[in-house]
Design a protein around this nucleic acid. Sequence first.
DNA 1: ACCTGAACACCGTTCAAGT
DNA 2: ACCTGAACACCGTTCAAGT
Lengths: 227, 227
Amino acid sequence: MKPGPRRSVSQVDIVDAAFEILEQKGFAAVSVRGVAAALGLTPTAIYTYFPSKNALLRAMVEELLSSLDLAAAADTGSAWRERVHALAAALRARIAEHTGAMVLVTSGPLDGRHALGLNETLIAGFMAEGMSQDDAARAAYAVRAHVLGVAALDAAERVDDAETSADTSTAGALWSDAASHPLTEATEHLVSGDAEPSAFVWGLDRLLDGILAGTAAGTAEGRAATA
Amino acid sequence: MKPGPRRSVSQVDIVDAAFEILEQKGFAAVSVRGVAAALGLTPTAIYTYFPSKNALLRAMVEELLSSLDLAAAADTGSAWRERVHALAAALRARIAEHTGAMVLVTSGPLDGRHALGLNETLIAGFMAEGMSQDDAARAAYAVRAHVLGVAALDAAERVDDAETSADTSTAGALWSDAASHPLTEATEHLVSGDAEPSAFVWGLDRLLDGILAGTAAGTAEGRAATA
DNA sequence: ACCTGAACACCGTTCAAGT
DNA sequence: ACCTGAACACCGTTCAAGT
């Protein structure tokens, strides 16, 4: 408890404490001071481990991604389509687990070791299906985008439920007016986070249908008329 | 300049001032105090127009979406695929225009009038192609997710370029080690924001291929084996 | 090397008061 | 109704100093 020259915590302790706060109080509540307090440290002590709050945030993203089983996604024991689904579902679940994790991911670059490893795994997998390196890269990009987009919609839906208050009183007034958006209203249940079958899986399947058409797994028919 | 009982600014003035700051200094710099100062007001005056900072942020998202031409997307004068592309490109461009706009979109619910209108337009469009209401809703969900996901990757890439500093020194160290991620490295140019043809368009086309297979615009062959 | 304590320049929001 | 000014409980970050 006294000043001592030896480290009293580790980088992962700090990241874990930050996740605890993220989960319980949301992204806005994640502060250097708060994390330090949770560990019984002074705010300035954190700067011994991370050069800035942003560096801590990036480390959190990396920890989030580190739990993805890239080895399983590279194991040709099962079909590529199934492996993509498993990987995508895992990534989506990781982001959905923590309140405000999507803001976290969006708040900075995705160039950490694990982020790049994920991309590498996806490209390699599509190439193994017979795609060119260029198209495989585009396909990997599309899959990453799809998962991130779904996570963004997940997050928007979640915070929507949480905010029942009068906070939304301005600049729109009669929003949820039932009659103005009948199709959205009628299909809301199909698209919510816990819908079964999930819109997430449906969309990913259609995307993979389009991507894999003409490859080993495809029907050798609708091969892309694109570059 | 004196206290007077009459409004000296409007809600849109405030939103515009906030966008100015967002564009020039990023999301973190958007503060109630800063916006007020830019308008020559006291921070507390803002609370006459918006009940909270979050309400101001939501109004910004709505203004962002208000510029989308939903009428053009509903005009059957051109092919549905082309209209989806135009709408998706416009939405992506709106988010890409302002630094930190993605964090803005992710930081709260997407239940504004214009957000719902966009969804409504997409569902109606897919139904006009012969899809069931349920599948059309799932298709609209997938398209929204794709655009948001691409915007998230755009944003991550942009902030990556901006951050050349030692900020990234911890918890990874030799990240951009060329050899560890050869595929990502070799295909980076295909996936960057200004690549031609863009990975965004490629991915959206594959998604639409998968979605529209079997409909009026499709080949009546690979109709989904899914629910 | 790791930590504290004080300090600087900020935040969002509330409240009483003025016109 | 619209605005100010003071106040409360916070921020991230820097710097000198202790062990």
